[in-house]
């Protein structure tokens, strides 16, 4: 078995991963209380930490690191499709609605400027 040596070390690895997950949970709670300039930055930080945690779970608890690559490919393609869905829906909403100031004002402004440039060029 290829993963035999990894299997023997598994309990220790899992404990280390669990501690990292718990530390990241504390960090995300603390970070939520700090203002990083705009709400948008806060969301990005929170989601980055969440993604770090999810990656740890996927790589170690779900063994993606040691598995055949096909399983990781399936997972990543699924995430990529979700990414496309999110991006295009967000893009439409940002370019469509007069968004209330705050959370996404900069992004909306950016999208509207790009769209007007594309349209005036054509």
């Amino acid at each position: 078995m290829k993963a035999h040596s990894a299997a023997e070390r598994a309990p220790r690895t899992y404990l280390a991963v669990l501690s990292a997950l718990l530390v990241l949970t504390v960090i995300t709670v603390v970070a939520a209380g700090v203002h990083f300039g705009s709400a948008f930055v806060n969301v990005v930080i929170a989601l980055t930490i969440a993604s770090a945690k999810a990656s740890l779970v996927a790589l170690y608890f779900m063994h993606l690191r040691h598995e055949r690559p096909i399983n990781a490919i399936i997972f990543v393609v699924g995430l990529a499709m979700l990414g496309i869905f999110l991006m295009l829906c967000f893009l439409d909403t940002l370019a469509r609605e007069p968004v209330e100031p705050g959370l996404t004002a900069q992004l909306a402004d950016w999208a509207v400027r790009i769209s007007s440039r594309i349209l005036s060029a054509s």
Binding site: T25, T28, G33, V34, N42, A46, L47, I49, A50, K53
Partner: peptide, 11 residues
């Protein structure tokens, strides 16, 4: 892991 910050930790 994603639901927690998105629902409980909006700042």
């Amino acid at each position: 892991i994603y639901l927690f910050p998105l629902l409980y930790l909006i700042s």
